[in-house]
Nucleic acid binder design. Sequence first.
DNA 1: GACTGATTATACTAATCGGTATACTTATTA
DNA 2: TAATAAGTATACCGATTAGTATAATCAGTC
Lengths: 187, 187
Amino acid sequence: MSVLREKILNTASVLFQTQGINSTGVDTIVAEAGTTKMTLYKYFNSKELLILEVLKQGHQDFQTWLNDKLSANSKVPSEKLQKLFDYIEEWLTSPDFHGIGFIKASAEFPREDSAVHQLSTRQSLQFREYIQHLATEANIKDAEGLALQLSLLFKGAAQAEQMQRGSDAIKYAKKAAKILIDGALKN
Amino acid sequence: MSVLREKILNTASVLFQTQGINSTGVDTIVAEAGTTKMTLYKYFNSKELLILEVLKQGHQDFQTWLNDKLSANSKVPSEKLQKLFDYIEEWLTSPDFHGIGFIKASAEFPREDSAVHQLSTRQSLQFREYIQHLATEANIKDAEGLALQLSLLFKGAAQAEQMQRGSDAIKYAKKAAKILIDGALKN
DNA sequence: GACTGATTATACTAATCGGTATACTTATTA
DNA sequence: TAATAAGTATACCGATTAGTATAATCAGTC
């Protein structure tokens, strides 16, 4: 893949998160990326397609990073579940964290017929299903329910961190997650 | 207060939630409200001030509604805490619910020096402090921690409902809240 | 009936937006 | 050296944006 395409993608990702998607113009992106609009529109046919690509890459980066971490450092399935929020904390508090894409995108594109909104919803669901998969492997009875609850805590923590960086939200999200997971493992 | 001013305020509130704040132009608001830009700018000196007023009214509406419900239907302090998510569910699932303002506003105005972002953060904090007040009155030891956790669940549920109306998120948020509250009441 | 204040109607500005057209400059390669 | 492809530079388009100026219209009140 072209190095310029990636440069544009990364630049847009940062700008979207720090300034907002709708508030970031195409001219700003190309200026920051050190290229021109002609090149941007060669790789992305429209701003909407660029947004979709940014979302896809961001979500995939997060999912593979998380999955790699969990797979490398856990032996039994239940361990993955218990360490889940440790890595979520690591991700949310990392200095180059700029927010969870699909959370902000769904706020900026509330209309359900919007392609951006639809992709956001799909990614949110996909993340929940990943947690549900972990819960199922850990032999948890109501895996769907626990996954939904952990997903809520994750969204809440990400939202809190997005509002105010360095808040205690993640710490308490971890504690709450531990209570819910331990309770579910006993049944 | 002028009836026209309120009409503009309510119209803007609905449009902001359904179409997004930045995506809603002033012309659209006045057309939908059945008035003109001259009148709008007579009551609100700028679009930013209108946004701030919409946020203020929305937050106050929610806070007073919730507080009234809790005060009217609870006898002992701990009962308020236990019924909290019942009313949150009622609010989130009501047909004229259009999202929690400060959650979406903070996503559309991510810059910390933005007045809208700052107000959103303040309102989020204020809501958390309200829950903390309930927890303190119920003699809960780590009232701050519980309030933060319940606040996370609330944000997560609101965010989920905003992504996809009629999701099961609130049901499971209630269950999670009950577990956390019951656990905190025992200590 | 004349005055007053609130509201409307309409036209306008200056800036910004996403997107395109055209011409020029590189670097690679055959 | 000629040809091809990638990228740059720049100017432009039509639409939309927030906000303003001006004149007309309406209601009620003295």
